[in-house]
Design a protein around this nucleic acid. Structure first.
Lengths: 209, 209
DNA sequence: CCTACCGATCGGTAGG
DNA sequence: CCTACCGATCGGTAGG
């Protein structure tokens, strides 16, 4: 039950093309017609794989979430827990949003802006994805506290919030303004954020209050 | 030459309605048909005021930029230069993006995400607006350095970059995730950013290197 | 997976 | 500012 069906292969090909379109024009800019042309298929052929445009959009989101897992989350898991892993997570995240191999920008970031006022299943999926990513960031921060790398009173939610801000600013500066320094600025901002919460040296397990 | 023409009034009414739609659905979601219905005008009636949809979108952007000037930039100018003005600028900016009186989110933020991969006049206008806002932030930081409130080696570009990040994260958390703490988190992040670069007390004009 | 079609809506124009 | 219209494209379906 491991062999990919012909249909599954086609579906994967379609999703890759859809992801490319969505990265440039956003999920709202992804139309059945444009996807049909990109895949050299008929519109009804696409409907055989995805019952509706909304289903397609949801599948594209899930496809992107899976890529995030492969490129950001899993590689970070292989790094020793604590500050090293947190740093790896941030670095991979930054690379993912700036150069994911797609022709356009990060689909999660554009979708967040597109659907913050469009109620429905897609918005719900975007929110769920953000919560997943947020939980991953917070977990990495918490481990860094447990390892004694960050001060015990560090607030994981606040750090995750600021990490998101740096990534968003970076995406904006790089992709919209063409700022080549964006990545450097982001790493500097992250380093200073961490330095601000770093535990005094030689402290192993931070003292609980 | 101060009296507003009948046509100018109508134009202003149209722009207000257009801004409301665009704040919810983005500039790409603003269609002539939806605007015609919102204003109880015919589509061709709208074309009498704006030659094309693109002209309309550009006018909406300019309209929003003007509001930003009234609500963020001008009020900050009335505060004494230095840290107080920088703080006021950030606070007004945050309020503007979170609750501008519009039904949806900040149009500049959504437009930045929508057009980062859509070349053309609208993208150019979005970039120009961002550069204007960025220059305003940097100027406020530079004045705070000159007043001796921030250390002389503070990099205005880096501070402006991080301020943008905090605002973007705030907008995302508040509008997409419904996080009521977003504003508090943003102010905390800003305070820590400033504290990190604050000049030692009693230093008037920072020593030039 | 296809051809052939549907009603609705898109931006825009002619003519007044 | 309007009515009345244009070709193109939208998401989606019937029938195979």
């Amino acid at each position: 039950m491991e062999k990919p069906t012909k249909g599954e292969q086609t579906r994967a090909t379609i999703l890759d093309a859809a992801l490319q379109i969505a990265s440039k024009l956003g999920l709202e800019g992804l139309t059945i017609g444009s996807l049909a042309e990109a895949t050299s298929m008929s519109k009804s052929g696409l409907f055989a794989h995805f019952g509706s445009r909304e289903d397609l959009q949801l599948a594209v989101l899930e496809h992107a979430a899976q890529r995030y897992g492969e490129r950001v989350f899993l590689p970070a898991l292989k790094i020793e827990r604590g500050l090293p892993r947190l740093r790896a997570l941030f670095g991979h995240w930054l690379d993912w949003t700036l150069s994911s191999g797609l022709p356009g920008g990060c689909i999660m970031i554009s979708a967040a802006a597109e659907y913050d006022d469009r109620p429905g299943p897609i918005r719900d999926a975007v929110i769920a994805n953000q919560h997943r990513g947020n939980a991953i960031s917070q977990k990495a921060v918490r481990l860094a506290i447990d390892e004694g790398h960050l001060k015990a009173d560090t607030d994981p939610e606040q750090i995750a919030f600021e990490m998101l801000g740096i990534v968003l600013a970076s995406h904006n500066h790089r992709r919209l303004l063409g700022d080549k320094e964006a990545r450097k600025r982001s790493l500097l901002a992250f380093d200073q954020l961490i330095a601000r919460h770093a535990a005094p040296r030689k402290t192993l397990k931070a003292v609980s209050r």
